[in-house]
Design a protein around this nucleic acid. Structure first.
Lengths: 216, 216
DNA sequence: CCTACCGATCGGTAGG
DNA sequence: CCTACCGATCGGTAGG
């Protein structure tokens, strides 16, 4: 076992009980965030396997070996993209629901969930979730399990809404199966939706609601 | 320019005006088909980039260089998987519609299309179409255009049905957008459906119809 | 963080 | 089809 060296402690092995952040530590976490953003962008457009750590380094303005100062491995980078992405959108989803005010209808809640999900998938500044959706395979089984738990939490918020809509008759399929179909329909938009096309995210949301709900 | 050698003409440069097949040629086309099946299976489960031509050769019982006797490149193998897969399912789709007999309802036609599509996606012996759906990126632009044309033809068959259901009021979204959402919902089943699970393809089809159509 | 480097793997080919 | 091989690229590391 090596004793920890005094200078250049690898930030991917952060120490516990964090003291106040020095200017250098703030710099480091910013560089780390830049790496994550560059990686997410490249993973989304080229795929994980087709993206080299050299590509990522170059996109973040570093030399080829430098990403490994911030991340243990290429796989750890992928995991971090997915993990940080999920943490972000799960919180944003809860806020989108709270913004509806008191006692929103089930339909209004579904609308908010769908609209927010579109934002996450095809809105500006969101390569993270598409990477999670389409690069699942590249994770190790342990990583998959952990990301899967975050994904379950995100999707769980939809179930009460779907159950309520099923009870009222608006939703005609079984809620569990409906949830899987609906996420499929939404997640697939990554493949075809053009943010610069004629359809706005609001219109897209409206069409989705009309497709899935039988009334109104 | 090399004159064509007398023995071992590369089968991936087939001559025109084909004469009757010799036994050797039949053998060759069978070996080619085995390669395609092995490639489709590996591409589906590991992804194109994560599958080496050596993996494919081994799965087909060959040595590492041998796939290049049958295919110009790894990319040509991917293209062939997608092309042959699309040709197969497009024909099968037409047959599924014809089997409905004269004057089927629009609902019956949609049911047949969905049911057939599930068969293509998650039924036995079908790695080809999932590869096409999820390895799109790995094609060259020219290959993408050609496969895209085949895909358009396959999907075009759905439009008259959706238009008809829109007119009758069963479908409440715009047919063009509905088609995209519906294919998303169906194509995504590749990610979660378990053929050995409790849900049959018939039940899955029924749930999909209930989700997308507002009446009955 | 950079420099310099290693071992492994990969797509593809020549020659039979 | 196999054998033997090449050049390129890749993830990752030691040492500063």
């Amino acid at each position: 076992m090596n004793p920890p060296s005094v200078q250049d402690p690898a930030p991917h092995a952060p120490r516990r009980g964090r003291p106040r952040k020095s200017a250098q530590e703030r710099d480091e976490s910013q560089r780390r965030a830049e790496l994550l953003r560059a990686a997410a962008r490249l993973f989304r457009h080229q795929g994980f396997d087709a993206t080299s750590t050299r590509d990522i380094a170059a996109a973040a303005g570093m030399q080829s070996g430098s990403p490994f100062y911030y991340f243990e491995s290429k796989s750890a980078l992928l995991y971090a993209v997915m993990h940080d992405g999920m943490a972000l959108v799960t919180q944003a989803q809860a806020q989108a629901l709270q913004a509806l005010g008191p006692r929103p209808t089930a339909r209004a809640r579904l609308q908010a969930l769908i609209r927010h999900h579109f934002e996450v998938l095809v809105g500006p500044a969101s390569d993270f979730i598409p990477v999670m959706l389409y690069e699942w395979r590249a994770l190790t089984p342990e990583q998959r399990a952990r990301i899967g738990a975050l994904k379950d939490r995100y999707e769980a918020a939809w179930m009460p809404v779907l159950v309520s809509l099923r009870r009222s008759g608006s939703l005609r399929a079984r809620p569990e199966v409906a949830r899987l179909f609906i996420f499929g329909a939404l997640n697939w938009t990554v493949q075809w939706f053009d943010p610069h096309g004629p359809l706005s995210l609001d219109e897209l949301t409206e069409q989705a609601l009309r497709l899935f709900l039988g009334d109104r």
